[in-house]
Amino acid sequence: MSPGAGEAYLVFRAGGERFGLAVDRVQGVARARQIVPLPGAPPEYAGVTFVRGEPLGVLDAVRALGCRPEAAVRIGGAGGGFLVILEGERHALLVDRIESVEEIPAEALTPASAESGTVRGIVSSGESALRIVSVDEVLGGGKR
C-alpha cells in the first residue's frame, strides 16, 4: 500500500472498547434477534441465529476479542446488540453498537505485538484507542 492510502474499517463497540474490522471482510450488519446457545461450542460462542433465512454461528465480540474475558456472554431472547456478518464465513460477531466506517491510513496503525491475539494493530488518535482486529484470528480462536 502506498503511503497515505487508507483501508476502510467498520468501527464498532463491544465491552466498552472500540474495534475496527476491514470492511471487505464484512457482508453486512443486522440487529440481533434470537440467538440460541449451541451445545458443545467454545465459550466465546453466543450461539446460532438466523439472518435472512440462513443460520449463522454467532461469536460474542466481548469474549472473542478478549477485551473483558469476565464479561457475561449474552444469550437467548431477542437481546440487544448488533450482528456484524462476516463475508463468506457463515459467522457473525455480536457487538454492542455500530459506530461508523472509517478510512485509516496505513501509517496511523501501530502494529500490535505477537501476543495480542486477535488485535492486529492500534490506532491511538481521537477519543479512545481503536483496535483493528483480524477476522481470521477471531474465527481461528472460535473454531479451536
Binding site: 458443545g40 461450542a41 446460532v48 454461528g57 472460535g142
Partner: peptide, 15 residues
C-alpha cells in the same frame, strides 16, 4: 437448515 461444518457444536446438533 444444516449448520455449516465450521460452526463448532456437539455432533448431535445437525441443523
Amino acid at each position: 437448515k444444516p449448520l455449516a461444518d465450521v460452526i463448532p457444536r456437539s455432533r448431535e446438533v445437525t441443523g
